[in-house]
Structure formats: structure tokens, C-alpha cells
Amino acid sequence: MKKILYLMNVDWNWIKQRPQFIAEGLSSSFEVSILYRYKYNRKGLTADNQAHNYKLSRIYTIPFINKQKTLKRINDWIIKCWINLLIRLTKPDLVYVTNPAHIAGVPSSYVGKIVYDCMDYHSAFIEDNIERKQLIESERELVNRADLIVVSSDKLKANLTQNYQLDGLSKRISVVRNGYNGEVLDNVLESEIDKKEKFSLAYIGTISHWFDFEALRYSLEQLPNIEYWIIGPQSKVSVLEHPRIKYFGSVEHTKLYNFIKDANVLIMPFQVNDIVEAVDPVKLYEYINFNKNIISIRYDEVERFEDFVYFYNTKDEFVEAIRNIQLSDGIKYSFDKRITFLKHNTWNNRVKQLVDLIKEL
């Protein structure tokens, strides 16, 4: 069986998304070892208590020094050494890279295959110009060395093709979108709470600088009977404190529905920037599974969710979408359309795509 070393830049117990789902899925077809960076601040993480057939290894870096450029280099060196050591010890047939910086740890003498899973527009996350240039050069090296590049959105494919202009690059790039866990919820119902008395809007996911708190603030001023439930970890952001906003932190993936089953609407209130434009949002797949009305900011990558989502561009349109749902008699999409969509967009289907691509290498 082919051995894969799967490299992650976040803690394994961080909110469960693409890296964890794909690693788990690949372990059904390959011998998978997962190397991830341990997060010392365990607040906001969830526990992984399930039996699994993959091996987990942690990278322990020096905590709380990454904001200091000189000391950060020590952690970068530690990560590089860990990756290099594990490759030399385990001799994987394939190294699966999810962050461009990790290519520094893959020795030039490595003769196995390299897969780059580009899940985000990585350079857009970095504010420091020097650090951003370093990451861009790492990504240039990675796309040059990779035998296969998979991206989660058309925008990411366009970014890589435009930014690096390497011969034959587009032929090595395949779009493998995001998905949901594959467990179709068949007992989900629209909230029976009176929309006129209390109207609840829930968000599930990371709260970071792209979260549009201004849209929430404005809607709370315009609509006195609405409230927000925010579920997920906070990442380097000051949140909006308001008596009608409740923060729940991270919740285990299997328990999410119980948290939002009484919500009237699920929302994705983002500010559109380079990062958001490149995202194929996992949460929209999961929101559809929860059988709720959905409100999302509009951008090109999510247009294909038109049949399921109320889109908005401005905060006034956001308020209008809420009012339209308050006046509606049901959910925007039908049960049959929901089931058809879900059957075609599971993480298992995405992994099957990846397995086929990897077997062709």
C-alpha cells in the first residue's frame, strides 16, 4: 500500500474542515501518517476521540514567539527539521503538502511524489512584506516540484496560473472542491420558533478579520427581534459585544446540528477580499445539509449556490434578505433538490477524485 506523509499547518483538533476530512479519507486507500503543528492554547479546539486508521504526529514548536520575526525563524527551522526527519525515517511514497512553507522540509534528494493541496490564497493572509515574499518564493518552488496540484476553487487555479506562469502548470492543476461529511440529516425541520417573537441567525466557522461585524451591527439596529448565535473559534479578531449576540466557541462537529436546530437562518457574513474571493466555503455545503434558509455575501465562487442561498452585496441588502425570510412560508430549496446536491458533494466524493489523481502519478 502506498505510504503518504500528510503535512498540516494547523492543530489536528482545530475546527474540522478540508485538511482533516481529506486526510481521513485518504487513509481508507493509503497508509497515511499525519504531521501537524501542536497548538498550545487549547481553547477553541475540539477532541478527537474516534478510532482511526491513520497515524498522528505532533510538531512541538516554541510557544507564543511567532510575532517576533527573529524568534519565528527558530520555529520555522524546527518545523523544517521535523518534516525532513520524518521523510528520511518513514520514506513515504508521496508527501502531501497543504502549506507552501513546508516545502523547505522536503529534501532535494527526495525521489517520491509531491502533491500540493492549495486550500487558501496563502500570501493574502500575510501582512509583512518580507514574510509574504518568502512565502511566495516557497510556493513557487512547491508548484515547480509538485507532481500534482489540487485547488479548492477556480479562483485559486487562476491565481496560481497567473502568479507563477510555469510551463505546463495548468495541466498539473485539478479543481477538487470542498464538501460536507456525507451524513445526510433526514430528521431536520425548519425552526418552529415564532419568527415574529424571536428570529435567530446562526454562524458556524472561524471568526477572523474577514467577518463582517458591521453588517451584524446594522441589522441589529434595523431589526429589533433578531439575535445571532456565533459558533466557532476566534482568530486574532475583536468581536462585537451585544446583548443579542451569543458566542459559543468551538463545538464538536457531530454536535453542531443540536446547537443550530432551532435557528431560523444560517449566515455567511463576510467582507469580500482576496482571501474570501478564493474560498469555496465548506459551511455552505453543511448549511444545506442542515435544511435551513441561508444568507451569504455574493462573490463569483459561490454563484453556483444560487438555488439554495439568499445573496446580498450591501448591509441594506443583508437586512432585506432577513426580512424576506421572515415573511416567507418555508425554505428556499426543495427537499429533492437538497438531497441531489448533497449526494454529489460529499467529502467521500472529493477523496475519490483525489485517489484517482494520485493513482495516476
Results as ranks from 00 to 15, higher is better:
K157F: 12
N66K: 07
N84Q: 13
Q165G: 11
I149S: 02
A146T: 10
S200E: 01
N129Y: 10
L223V: 10
Y203G: 00
Q326K: 09
E131W: 13
I230Q: 00
A146D: 10
A51S: 13
V175W: 02
T61E: 15
L354K: 05
V319E: 00
L166W: 07
V265R: 01
N345Y: 12
Y218A: 03
I288V: 05
M8A: 10
L342M: 08
E192K: 15
T90E: 14
D76Y: 10
R37I: 14
I34V: 15
K332N: 05
P63F: 12
Q68L: 15
T340W: 12
M119R: 07
E183P: 05
N348R: 11
M1N: 15
L86V: 08
V276C: 04
L142K: 11
K3P: 09
T314V: 11
S174I: 09
P281C: 04
A215C: 07
N13Y: 00
R177M: 11
V143L: 01
S328K: 08
K55M: 10
K352A: 08
S235A: 12
I74C: 09
S328P: 08
Y228E: 03
N144H: 13
P243M: 06
P100W: 01
L342H: 03
A263P: 03
F259R: 07
S108G: 13
K155W: 05
A101R: 15
K91R: 15
A321V: 05
D307Q: 15
F213P: 04
T70M: 13
V251W: 03
D280F: 08
F335S: 10
G249H: 07
D117R: 04
I275E: 06
I193E: 10
R42M: 01
L148H: 06
K55F: 03
E214D: 15
K198E: 06
N187R: 10
E214A: 04
I79E: 14
L135W: 14
Y116N: 01
K67I: 08
Y54D: 00
I74P: 05
D356H: 11
N289L: 00
N66Q: 06
N273V: 01
Q68R: 12
L45V: 01
N178V: 03
G232N: 02
L86W: 10
E317Q: 09
K261E: 03
R18C: 04
D194W: 05
S138R: 13
S138I: 06
I339N: 09
A263H: 04
T206N: 13
H344C: 13
L160G: 07
K39W: 02
N225A: 07
A215H: 03
N289Q: 02
L166N: 06
N273H: 08
N49Y: 02
I325Y: 02
A158S: 13
N289K: 01
H253R: 01
I294P: 06
E127V: 09
M268W: 07
L142H: 11
Y299C: 09
F259E: 10
Q50I: 04
E320A: 14
V351G: 06
